[in-house]
Design a protein around this nucleic acid. Sequence first.
DNA 1: TTTGAACTGTCAGGAGTTTAACATTGACGC
DNA 2: GCGTCAATGTTAAACTCCTGACAGTTCAAA
Lengths: 217, 217
Amino acid sequence: MKRTNVSNNVIRRLPRYLRKLDDLAAKGEERISSDKLGRQMGLTPSQIRQDFSCFGEFGQQGYGYNVDFLRREIGQILGTYRGYSAILVGAGNLGTALVQNFDFIIEGYVFLGAFDIKPEVIGTQIDGFPVYDVRDLPGFVREHKVDIAILTVPRHAAQELTDTLAQAGIRAIWNFTNTELDVGDSGILVENIHFSDSLLVLTYHLAQQDDKEKNEV
Amino acid sequence: MKRTNVSNNVIRRLPRYLRKLDDLAAKGEERISSDKLGRQMGLTPSQIRQDFSCFGEFGQQGYGYNVDFLRREIGQILGTYRGYSAILVGAGNLGTALVQNFDFIIEGYVFLGAFDIKPEVIGTQIDGFPVYDVRDLPGFVREHKVDIAILTVPRHAAQELTDTLAQAGIRAIWNFTNTELDVGDSGILVENIHFSDSLLVLTYHLAQQDDKEKNEV
DNA sequence: TTTGAACTGTCAGGAGTTTAACATTGACGC
DNA sequence: GCGTCAATGTTAAACTCCTGACAGTTCAAA
C-alpha cells in the first residue's frame, strides 16, 4: 500500500465510495468503471482513478473495478475489520439514537457500553448494552483500552469529560457536543459532528436563493 | 454585500466562525483581531481576513473586529434571523433528540411539528410540538410553505419520502438517512449528515497510527 | 490468433485555494 | 494634536487539488 501524502479531501471521499460500492454490491453489480461510477456520484472519472491510485492499483485495464474487491479494499483502508472498541459517553436521546440506529456495532466495531451521570439511567440497558456510572469511566477506559469515545453529553459537560477521557488514555473522540474540544497536545483524534454547522450551510443557500430572486424581480 | 464567487470552503467555515464568535461574546470579549482569532481556531490570519472580505469589510484597521457586530453580520450572511420554517419527518429517536437538544427552533427558525407513520406516535407531542400523520405531510407542506424538512426516517423509506416532499414543494432537505437522495432537477437543496462517514474518517486515522507504529517497531 | 474497443494508471497543465507581503488606515498614548 | 503601533483589505506568489490526455493493458469478438 502506497498511502504517501494522501490529502484530506481524498480521505473524506472514501466513505462515500464505500457507501456507493455497498449499494452496487447489494444490487448485484459485479463490475464498475470509473466512468460509470463518476456519472453516478457526480465526480469525474479522472478524480476517481486518481483517488484510488493513492492506495494502490485496484482496477484492471479494459475491465474496470471489481465491485466486491474494491469495496473490501476501501473498507480495509478505512480501518473497518480492525475491531476498534467504542463506548458511548452520555446516554441521552442522541446517544441512544446512535446506538440503536447504526450497525457500526456489528460492522467491524466492538461496542462496550454506555456511561451516564443520571442515577435513573445507570443500570438500565440500551439496545442490550449496559449503562454504567460515569464515575467508573476512567477505570473502564484504562482497563479495556477503549479506542473511541462517542461523546453525546450536554455542551457544558463536554470539556470536563474530554479531560477525563484524555487522562484515561482514550485514542479518539467522536464529538457530537457542538463545541470545539481542547485535547492539548495529547494526540487524541477528534472527529466533530456539528449539526448546526450543516443546517447553517443549508440556510445560507436558501438565503442566497431568496436574495437572487429578489434582485431579479 | 459582494458575495461574488464564494467558494464552498469559505461557506463551510462560516458556521465555525459564528460558533467561535458566540463563545467570545459569551465571555464578554468586545474585540478580536484576525491574528488572535487565527491562533484560537487553528487558521492563518490571512485566511480569516480573506474569508470575511468575500462579504464586505467588517473590520477596522488598527483595531480589529468588533465581536458582536461581526457575529451579527455572519449570522445575517448565513440566513439566520430569516425565520425559515422546518418540520421533522420521522419522529424516532434521532428526530426526537434533534428537536429536544437543539435550540435552532428558538434561534431564528420556526419549527412547525413532526410527522411519523406509527399510529402509537401520531397525536403525541415532542418537546411540546405535535406529531402528525405522515399521510398529511404533502398537504401540510403545501399549505404552510415549509422551507426545510429534517429527514430522520429509516434508510428504506428515505427516497419515497423525498419524492413526496419534492412533489409538495419543499425547498430544502436536511438529510440524516445515510443515503444519497435523488432530487432530480427539482433544485431542492440537500444537506447530508452522514454519521458513518465521519466515523470512518476517524477510524482511518486510527488505522494509520497503528500501521505507522507497527512499521517503526 | 488477430484486431478493435474498453478502461486503467499516470503525467502534466490548469484551476482553485491558501499564504505571505504590503500599502493604508485608524486607534491610542504622550 | 501628533507619532507610533496595530491591524485591516488586497494583491500576488506559492501551493494544492482537479481535470484532461495518453500510453499501455486487458478483454472479447471475429
